[in-house]
Simulated scan of single mutants.
Amino acid sequence: MPAKKKGLYANIHAKQERIAHGSGEHMRKPGAPGAPGKEDFEKAAKTAKPKKDAH
């Protein structure tokens, strides 16, 4: 059984962590080739898990 792919926000968070630790990478500007578009964020929102309350 293949492993489940990580989502858009997990990939963004992972890249931000790498950048913070000095990887030399940079985030793409909105609209740049290869950058996630509006449709990608809308699709990710449909599959997002609901937040758990910390009560």
Rank of each mutant, 00 (worst) to 15 (best):
P2T: 14
P2F: 11
P2W: 09
P2D: 12
A3G: 07
K4P: 15
K5D: 14
K6S: 02
K6P: 00
K6V: 06
G7K: 06
G7N: 10
L8D: 02
Y9H: 04
N11K: 11
N11L: 06
I12V: 15
A14T: 06
K15Y: 00
K15D: 10
K15T: 13
Q16Y: 07
Q16C: 12
R18W: 05
R18L: 15
R18Q: 15
A20G: 15
H21K: 15
H21M: 14
G22H: 10
G22I: 15
G22P: 10
S23I: 13
G24A: 08
G24R: 07
H26A: 14
M27F: 04
M27T: 06
M27P: 04
M27A: 07
K29S: 09
K29G: 04
K29E: 12
P30R: 04
P30I: 01
P30C: 03
G31Y: 03
G31E: 03
G31W: 02
A32L: 00
A32D: 11
A32S: 10
A32F: 00
P33E: 05
P33N: 09
G34W: 05
A35F: 01
P36D: 02
P36H: 03
P36K: 03
P36S: 03
K38F: 11
E39Y: 13
E39N: 10
D40P: 04
F41N: 00
E42D: 12
E42V: 04
K43N: 08
K43F: 07
A44N: 01
A45L: 06
A45V: 00
A45S: 06
K46R: 15
T47Y: 07
T47A: 15
A48N: 02
A48L: 03
K49E: 12
P50L: 02
P50K: 07
K51Q: 10
K52Y: 02
K52F: 05
D53I: 08
A54V: 04
A54P: 01
H55C: 07
H55Y: 05
